[in-house]
Simulated scan of single mutants.
Amino acid sequence: MRPLQKGTIISIVRGVDPHEIVPIAEALLEEGIEWLEVSLSEEKQGLDNIKLLSETYGDRLQLGVGTVIHKEQADRAIAAGARYVITPGWERELVRYVKSLDMQIFPGVYTPGDIMQAVQEQLQVVKLFPASTLGADFVKQVQGPFPSLHIMGVGGIALSNINSFYEAGCSSFAIGSDLVPRGATRQQLSTIRERAKQYKNILHEKG
């Protein structure tokens, strides 16, 4: 798996039927979005999607799992083909467990205390969630004590506010329904493609 680079967009896929997931992933790849996070908010469906995407795309897709809240979920997702783990909040033991498997984990953080604990665990990337609640100014402020930390903005990120979060210091973004609607189908491919182009163009111009 490649390192997470500045300006990366991760597409969050949630509630998508396995019969629809491959054309959606193909559209994202064709528009230059190679990172995809499959949420386990609907666990069986999510695991089925991870397995199918892993078998279909292999190394072409930077495939991860999100909404992981306990070790057993991480185990099942990794067995299905996930290459990194994203959590909604901070949980030290889960972080240590995933790291012990030699897997990348991008844990959710909400406070400077959460961030401090992540730094103590020698993590280089944290997921700020929900970013839109905290606001871009929060990101700017935490750059002071944590200047080298890679902050991924997640939660409420949209075309209307991604600029402000990027300028404040978010290095990457995981984007949900504003890019791939929950439960999306192939009938929405044209919209997904257009949104993907818009997001890529914004970050390309900033880069």
Score class of each variant (00 low, 15 high):
100 S>I: 14
169 G>V: 04
118 A>M: 12
65 V>L: 05
63 L>W: 01
58 G>M: 00
171 S>A: 00
74 A>W: 04
178 D>K: 03
136 A>N: 10
196 A>S: 08
112 P>N: 14
194 E>M: 13
144 G>N: 13
179 L>Y: 09
5 Q>C: 04
75 D>V: 09
121 E>C: 12
67 T>L: 08
121 E>M: 12
190 S>L: 13
142 V>G: 11
3 P>V: 04
19 H>V: 11
30 E>Y: 08
40 L>M: 05
45 Q>H: 09
129 F>L: 07
20 E>I: 10
127 K>V: 04
20 E>K: 14
134 L>Q: 13
8 T>L: 01
74 A>M: 05
138 F>Y: 15
135 G>K: 14
53 L>H: 04
107 P>A: 10
128 L>N: 06
39 S>A: 07
52 L>F: 06
70 H>D: 10
65 V>C: 03
33 I>L: 09
130 P>V: 09
29 L>M: 09
32 G>Q: 01
95 V>R: 14
38 V>F: 00
40 L>Q: 05
46 G>R: 05
191 T>Y: 14
163 N>T: 07
38 V>T: 01
187 Q>M: 13
135 G>I: 11
165 F>D: 02
29 L>Q: 05
139 V>L: 06
74 A>Y: 03
50 I>C: 03
29 L>H: 06
99 K>W: 09
103 M>C: 09
138 F>D: 08
178 D>P: 04
149 L>N: 04
83 R>N: 05
19 H>M: 11
63 L>M: 04
127 K>A: 06
29 L>N: 02
50 I>Q: 01
79 A>T: 03
34 E>V: 02
171 S>D: 03
16 V>T: 14
108 G>T: 10
91 E>M: 12
15 G>H: 12
51 K>G: 02
163 N>S: 08
76 R>L: 00
111 T>I: 13
53 L>W: 03
114 D>Q: 15
6 K>C: 00
60 R>L: 02
48 D>I: 07
82 A>C: 02
110 Y>N: 15
155 G>L: 09
100 S>Y: 15
118 A>Q: 13
148 S>N: 09
80 A>G: 01
34 E>F: 01
174 A>H: 05
18 P>G: 10
45 Q>N: 13
27 A>P: 00
12 I>V: 14
173 F>A: 03
49 N>M: 05
36 L>K: 02
10 I>V: 01
55 E>F: 07
82 A>W: 01
16 V>A: 12
201 N>R: 15
99 K>T: 06
141 Q>W: 11
205 E>P: 13
135 G>M: 12
94 L>F: 12
40 L>R: 03
34 E>W: 00
11 S>D: 02
51 K>A: 06
51 K>W: 02
153 G>M: 07
5 Q>R: 08
61 L>D: 02
57 Y>K: 00
7 G>W: 02
133 T>R: 14
134 L>W: 09
151 I>E: 01
149 L>W: 05
123 L>P: 08
85 V>P: 01
5 Q>K: 09
49 N>E: 07
103 M>V: 08
81 G>M: 00
179 L>M: 09
13 V>Y: 11
1 M>A: 00
1 M>V: 00
92 R>V: 11
172 S>A: 06
152 M>L: 08
31 E>G: 03
14 R>C: 07
12 I>W: 11
15 G>P: 15
92 R>Y: 12
8 T>D: 04
26 E>F: 07
173 F>E: 00
2 R>P: 10
120 Q>E: 15
29 L>A: 05
46 G>I: 04
37 E>F: 00
101 L>M: 10
48 D>T: 08
159 L>H: 06
145 P>T: 10
93 E>Q: 14
